[in-house]
Design a protein around this nucleic acid. Structure first.
Lengths: 242, 242
DNA sequence: CGTTCCCTTGAGATCCGTCAATATTAGTGG
DNA sequence: CCACTAATATTGACGGATCTCAAGGGAACG
């Protein structure tokens, strides 16, 4: 079910939900008017405050959902991955978040009205949306816990563990190594710190032989120790079971 | 639509949604097996990690949704109010949050299965749930922004402004004064700080003539200045319009 | 009317932010 | 492939914000 666009240049035209959909749901979604869109790195796809009638489903690539503050700062809420839905809402309303691409990004753009229609057409699909929303909420809750209650080093380690796990796909297998295009500025905005301090924290984590994040690559040097250090328990990432 | 339990001792037996429901939806919900439950202050209603098949809709009273950390600390995610739904999920699954009463609390307890059934029975209700979930998500996003990107004093002021606004009900009218049973420990756990520091921050806010929080009472001394100081923009609290 | 929370304050340590400067890397165009 | 440029990463010094430890004081509640 998970797409592997890199190995398959012909892009599949149904959303990459990680939760099984019936063929009927699939066909209905395809008929909703979902548009496949490609964005270059560092493009603004949706801006906080705009009256927004679209929702997005990530197909592939890295991006961030964030809020913008008056002083020009931002808080990154999440780095959504394949199958995640952004802007799920019942009705058109002003967006309270922005969506910005980090790498080249491919998304399905769906009119919000179409989502409402989909929910009304297919109870099965409504359940799927509820389920996806519940998982995204669990992730958001964990981010708040991370920023509010862990100190810098554990906070950074926790985020990198989470991303590694989410990249593992359905199996949620956490690899000891992954490519990560985030900058230290991105990490800082996600973790509620400054990039300068993130830099020092990453240095500490290397010197503690826990993990290394350099040259766009995360290497877990000692995975069990890192999990313990960060208080990482991946249960919140598990999908709801049917 | 908003209930006023204090002025009406006979408790209404339908959930206090702030979004209009059709009579049919209402009747269906009533038939779902929703149970009205009362809790004393400081009771644990739902505990993180437990396999949970219930959802709750707040009727009246104060409570907090929080995560629990291994070291005994907690991060408060939200103080839900009348009409807010806790544990909305498509299927039974382990809970990633705890729910604890702060004052005497009255809630509707609904089996998760019943929620799924409700969504499948009534597209209208599915839309309502989506809408409630979207608002709660907006609040959670604002909490993450608050903890991640505002300094202590502004962070505390922002939370107290949000609570005041949410207490205003549908009109979202922010009164210059409200009763607030939260302790400084509660505030600290919600804001990602220590109670000792919250104490100093509240002192600062008083001395800045912005607001006073003493003896379970919040007084906004200079509301416009406080809003500006906290960067408070209540648009995220507005309900989605149909 | 006493006991238990809860609030308040001080001193010192630690974490983190700010300012500043430089090094390194990635991206671009020739 | 190289040279150039912009973005990103790194480090130091210093100051402010927040935490920890410690000790009382006050309010709420039975």
């Amino acid at each position: 079910m998970t797409l592997a666009p890199e190995s398959n240049p012909k892009i599949q035209d149904t959303p990459p939900f990680r939760i099984p959909l019936s063929e009927a749901d699939r066909a209905f979604l395809a008929g909703l008017g979902a548009t496949l869109r490609r964005y270059a790195p560092h493009e603004t796809i949706m801006r906080q405050g705009d009256d927004e009638g679209r929702a997005f489903i990530i197909h592939s690539g890295w991006s961030c959902v964030h809020t913008d503050l008056p002083d020009g700062e931002r808080q990154i809420i999440d780095f959504p991955f394949s199958g995640d839905i952004i802007g799920l809402r019942a009705y058109q309303s002003p967006s309270y978040i922005s969506l910005t691409s980090i790498t080249k990004l491919i998304v399905f753009e769906v009119p919000a009205k179409a989502l409402t229609a989909a929910v009304e057409h297919s109870p099965r699909l409504a359940g799927t949306f509820l389920s996806v929303a519940a998982r995204q909420r669990a992730i958001l809750v964990e981010h708040l816990t991370n920023v509010g209650r862990r100190r810098g080093a554990a906070r950074a380690a926790h985020l990198l563990l989470e991303i590694g796990t989410r990249l593992g796909g359905d199996g949620q297998r956490l690899a000891s190594h992954y490519e990560c295009p985030l900058t230290q500025y991105d990490l800082a905005d996600a973790l509620g710190m400054t990039a300068i301090h993130i830099n020092r924290i990453l240095k500490d984590l290397r010197e503690l032989d826990l993990l290394s994040f350099r040259h766009r690559t995360v290497d877990f040097i000692n995975l069990p120790a890192t999990k313990k250090f960060a208080g990482f328990n991946p249960s919140y990432l598990l999908l709801e079971r049917i």
